[in-house]
């Protein structure tokens, strides 16, 4: 298995920060807000590897920093410190050393993101097909017929009715909007996909079908994924390995079945016990 992403000491502090920030926050301090300067330590010292075709789960409650990690890795947010390298075929991308144009290129061509809130991932002023077209146009495809054909295929693959591809996603149900988002994220066949709470807030039956779809796609395309969720069920179903975060720190990581059956940290034990 080849490594596709290496993250080392990723840190994000909102606010001006002070020398005591790190020592005064984290699971032991039971807060992520520095009592000395009021800065929020959203993530500190986050390190992990991701291999091609692997699904990694990042689990934690709100404020744990799990979304911060994928947001910085998708350039939605700039980290305060740390390094991340994407290994892409023969090339290596040192994410946080790239200039804005390179980041944009990488984001459009080699990364994909599906947000919990479809408003972040979709442009509601254009049709579902137009949303996919936008991403294809970003990657320099300029043939209308081909764009349309690929958009139709992607929407069909994510089980959105092709006859609805010219409608605005505004008119779609929450589950359908997530499907359009997934189709858009997959449009350029990225080797790396981030999924941030994609099924949160959806009906259970809709959730189940979207999770199935994600797994099928992972098997078909061998896409590596980072799945951010607070839902143990999602982790159990999707992730081979899992990281547990609390107050911006990784408190435990391991194979998913080990995390669920033999959790080591008190917090994880409580989390697992409360879910079963």
């Amino acid at each position: 298995m080849k490594k596709i992403l290496e993250v080392r000491n990723l840190t994000k502090i909102h606010g001006r920060g002070c020398p005591q920030c790190i020592d005064s926050t984290g699971p032991e301090a039971d807060t992520n807000i520095c009592p000395h300067c009021g800065s929020v330590v959203a993530a500190y010292g986050v390190s992990f590897d991701l291999h091609a075709g692997e699904i990694l789960g990042i689990m934690g409650e709100s404020g744990s920093g799990k979304s911060t990690v994928v947001k910085t890795l998708y350039f939605d947010d700039a980290p305060s410190a740390g390094e991340a390298i994407v290994f892409d075929e023969a090339r290596q991308w040192n994410l946080f050393a790239l200039n804005a144009a390179e980041q944009r290129w990488l984001r459009n061509h080699r990364l994909g993101m599906v947000y919990q809130n479809p408003h972040l991932g979709l442009n509601f002023n254009v049709s579902a097909g137009g949303n996919i077209a936008e991403r294809l146009l970003m990657s320099d495809l300029a043939h209308y017929g081909e764009i349309r054909e690929r958009a139709r295929r992607l929407l069909a693959r994510t089980e959105v009715l092709p006859e609805r591809m010219d409608e605005s996603p505004k008119k779609f149900s929450g589950g359908m909007q997530q499907r359009v988002q997934i189709a858009k994220a997959l449009a350029t066949q990225p080797p790396l996909l981030y999924l941030d709470e994609v099924t949160t807030g959806l009906d259970l039956s809709v959730q189940a079908r979207i999770l199935d779809l994600i797994l099928e796609i992972q098997q078909e395309l061998n896409t590596a994924m980072i799945v951010v969720t607070h839902d143990l069920g999602v982790i159990r179903l999707l992730a081979g390995r899992t990281i547990v975060m609390k107050y911006g720190r990784i408190i435990e990581s391991g194979l998913t079945d080990q995390i669920l059956e033999d959790p080591q940290h008190a917090y994880t034990q409580r989390l697992v016990a409360s879910a079963l």
């Binding site: 944009r104 442009n123 254009v126 049709s127 097909g129 137009g130 077209a133 936008e134 991403r135 146009l137 970003m138 300029a142 209308y144 764009i147 010219d166």
Partner: peptide, 14 residues
């Protein structure tokens, strides 16, 4: 980056 402008043309044709 003019992809969104092109998207507008796409929507026009649609």
């Amino acid at each position: 980056d003019y992809s969104r402008l092109l998207t507008k043309l796409y929507e026009d044709i649609v």
